[in-house]
């Protein structure tokens, strides 16, 4: 029972880490950043390549090597996230009218496809796997993810830049009048969200999944749904949503309907959204125009 619960919470914590990236960007930009799952995939590759090629994998690098590789992947993910924002989204923010929402959304999907195809060319479609002996125990996944999320919470609520992020999320114009530069805050948000995805990617890839160009879509979909169910734009909501999906998934897996896990989990989540359309912790207030 204990190991079951540990596993379920660990699954949820990993989903939550990725969900945070979706929800933070939505919070400040009202943009669903579909390229987020590809940032996750690329950082998985970076961590794997650095660990495998430069640090000698399990045999020579051990868990110390993995930690170094993770740090490299975090930096790479942050750089990639910021680059995507600068190249693909920044120009479109000036758009007004009907295209103001649609253009960035379509661009996000485009960036996602582009990165997937580039990854397929660069790394081939053959899935790669971390040595299973590098897998951290489940309790470590929970502790690491909780620590990262606690740090994020502190960052958002206790620091100046966190306050600025919240201000931009509430009203970009007003925060500009208060001396905040929204464009800097947006860059910072992308960097943090991507870094979280990198941590999620390493935990996910070492404990269970193989690294392949489409790996982002499988965990990314779950994370996106977690963000929506928790209430997109809400940071505690993303954590809660991730945990909920992890627990529900493992619950279904322990019944005899385990072969239909995704279908059952998603039906349950649709029911949640029917009762609370804005998500569990989302605010239902009308959006200001």
């Amino acid at each position: 029972m204990l190991s079951w619960l540990q596993n379920a919470v660990a699954q949820g914590a990993m989903i939550a880490l990725v969900a945070l990236g979706y929800t933070m960007v939505y919070g400040v930009l009202r943009l669903i950043n579909f390229a987020h799952s590809e940032v996750l995939m690329v950082s998985g590759y970076v961590a794997f390549r650095v660990d495998d090629r430069l640090l000698g994998g399990y045999e020579r690098g051990g868990s110390k090597g993995l930690i170094i590789a993770t740090c490299v992947a975090i930096v790479a993910a942050a750089v990639l996230g910021v680059t995507i924002e600068a190249v693909a989204y920044r120009k479109l923010r000036a758009a007004k009218g009907a295209t103001a929402r649609i253009a960035p959304l379509v661009t996000a999907i485009g960036v996602s496809m582009l990165l997937q195809s580039v990854a397929q060319l660069a790394f081939t479609a053959t899935p790669q796997k971390f040595d299973p002996r590098l897998a951290p125990p489940m309790w470590f996944v929970i502790v690491a993810a909780s620590a990262v999320m606690a740090a994020l919470y502190a960052l958002v609520h206790l620091t100046w830049i966190g306050k600025a992020m919240r201000a931009v999320a509430v009203n970009e114009e007003a925060s500009r009048l208060m001396g905040i530069r929204p464009s800097r805050i947006i860059v910072f948000t992308f960097a943090i969200g991507s870094a979280l995805a990198a941590i999620g990617a390493v935990l996910y890839a070492t404990t269970q999944a193989s690294i392949e160009p489409t790996m982002g879509t499988s965990i990314g979909t779950l994370a996106f749904v977690a963000a929506v169910v928790g209430g997109i734009g809400s940071i505690p909501g993303a954590m809660l949503g991730g945990l909920l999906i992890g627990l529900l998934g493992e619950l279904v897996k322990s019944t005899s309907y385990s072969g239909m896990k995704d279908a059952i989990v998603f039906v349950l989540l649709v029911l949640v959204l029917l009762v609370r359309p804005a998500g569990l912790l989302g605010s239902a207030r009308a959006e200001k125009v």
Binding site: S3, N7, Q208, S218, G259
Partner: peptide
């Protein structure tokens, strides 16, 4: 007898049962 979804990444629950 344990069944899982094709592509399932975590089978710990099944092996525990």
């Amino acid at each position: 007898k344990e069944t899982y979804q094709q592509g399932e990444t975590n089978i710990l629950t099944f092996l525990t049962k």
